[in-house]
Design a protein around this nucleic acid. Structure first.
Lengths: 275, 275
DNA sequence: CGATAAACAGAATTTTTATTCCATTTTACT
DNA sequence: AGTAAAATGGAATAAAAATTCTGTTTATCG
């Protein structure tokens, strides 16, 4: 072992682990991966608890620590703890710090800060406005559906595609309506009163989304909508809808709040179904 | 002592300590002050070390913890530690907190709160870790590309599809690689050294994404990657990559930080091109 | 394919750490 | 000021945790 192994700060430790990992035995390499993935777990856990979570023997943790140059696991753990000791501030403290500093060096980080802040604002604002009763009704309606049809184009497509992925994972039948070659209309025409349509659209409202929703509404297909204004054509056509006003940065709207709501609906529906 | 003392979250604990401090015996009040001033010390120290720093006897710490309603010092310490973990409060903890506050809420809003919190934490954590120089390099590389190839499957697909939409709006030539019918490989095989590949993948890494990236790397196509660990196969194959560890709620990872970074890259590239 | 060394799991042991107990001091009250 | 109750310090004990050790398995090399 070379001199000056066993760094006392986290950054160098990370480098060390990365460098040594490939040449470590299987089980120890597994621990290396786990450690970088779950630094907080290492910082707070006990040898026994970490061993359990990482699916290794307690003794392997000590061997790992010693293999990369520490005296024992506790010695290594110190470094993980140290990182949290001075660095991590509470939320409020961090936000505070940010406003005071605003030391974004480059143009790119300015942009990132802008989006980060827009995201946080959007989520905070939705959190305050979101009506629990409305949410419950939407969840109930979606949970009852045989098939959930997901309609969202352009800006909204990432959201519906996420929902489709998550519903799929959760074993909930869904149909991601993709407007390729104008076939969208046919997809949705299969929807019945026993299904449910989830429509997402923001200004300027994509005409297909609006048309599909109105068509579905006319055929008594239940609809849940996410949109950005009570004047949206989606709101007009739909008894259950959520208003989300995303904060924007330089004209580019965040999507954080919409995404959070989409995830909520997805999981809540799955939970509801389980009962 | 009223029922339901002993909060499990730091915010309420702070309130409790402040409320009880005036009526506590001298030595215990001293500990109360010390605890509020040195939360990290409480979180990481041992009874003996904290006692020394706070100039009290070890037993006083246990008495303090019990006096404000905890079973022992370790029980109290848990709360101080929890604050530093980036784990979002779980269901149970939220329900608990709710009972303490006597606020009415539905299951769905609990889920929403969970995702909102996870999103905020993820973004904050990325904000701290994001390296401006790395970001600049990524932007420069993407800005130079004739065509930007976007690769991301499953969980990552919403992100790449958003980027594709935004790039399109901004008049930046891009190619959203969709792995439909195994055609993805052909798409990317057109990429040359003058283009750039943007690859996004998280555990468990989609094999197509990894294969495409490696293939592109072998042909000297510049690559920018977003992934969740230095051990990720994407990190190995790529000189420029970003590590994002999204906080999760009940096992479902937020995507807020990834999305914010994606938006940043998109806009920053457009800005760079304008010059 | 067999021998040797490395890696490993799990139990045993040692060390560290939290908690309890009790004698002494301080405080509050008459 | 005297007494009872509460608070405190510090040692003793109990609990928990880290580390070491040993027999067994797995990999490596001839």
């Amino acid at each position: 072992m070379l001199p000056n192994e066993a760094p006392r700060d986290f950054e160098n430790l990370k480098v060390l682990i990365l460098r040594r990992a490939p040449e470590l035995p299987r089980r120890l390499a597994q621990i290396a991966t786990y450690a970088l993935h779950n630094p907080n777990e290492i910082a707070f856990g006990t040898v026994a608890s970490i061993a359990q979570n990482a699916a290794v023997q307690p003794s392997a943790l000590i061997r790992f620590a010693q293999a990369i140059g520490y005296q024992g696991f506790s010695d290594l753990q110190e470094v993980f703890r140290h990182r949290l000791r001075d660095n991590v501030l509470s939320y409020d403290e961090r936000l505070q710090q940010l406003r005071e500093h605003a030391t974004s060096a480059t143009k790119s980080t300015l942009i990132f800060d802008g989006f980060a802040e827009a995201s946080e604002k959007s989520i905070e604002s939705l959190r305050q406005k979101l009506d629990p009763a409305e949410l419950e009704r939407a969840v109930a309606m979606l949970a009852k559906a045989e098939t959930i049809y997901l309609v969202g184009l352009r800006r909204s497509f990432p959201i519906t595609s996420y929902m489709s992925y998550a519903f799929g994972k959760l074993g909930i039948r869904n149909n991601l309506v993709a407007a390729i070659g104008g076939l969208a209309a046919e997809d949705v025409s299969f929807a019945t009163e026993k299904d449910c349509l989830m429509a997402i659209s923001f200004t300027p409202y994509a005409s297909e989304t609006v048309a599909l929703s109105q068509n579905a509404a006319a055929r008594n297909v239940p609809i849940v909508a996410i949109t950005d204004s009570p004047f949206s054509p989606l709101a007009a056509a739909t008894p259950i809808w959520f208003e989300i006003q995303e904060a924007n940065f330089e004209g580019f709207r965040s999507m954080a709040a919409t995404l959070a709501l989409a995830m909520t609906l997805t999981i809540a529906v799955a939970e509801r179904r389980k009962i």
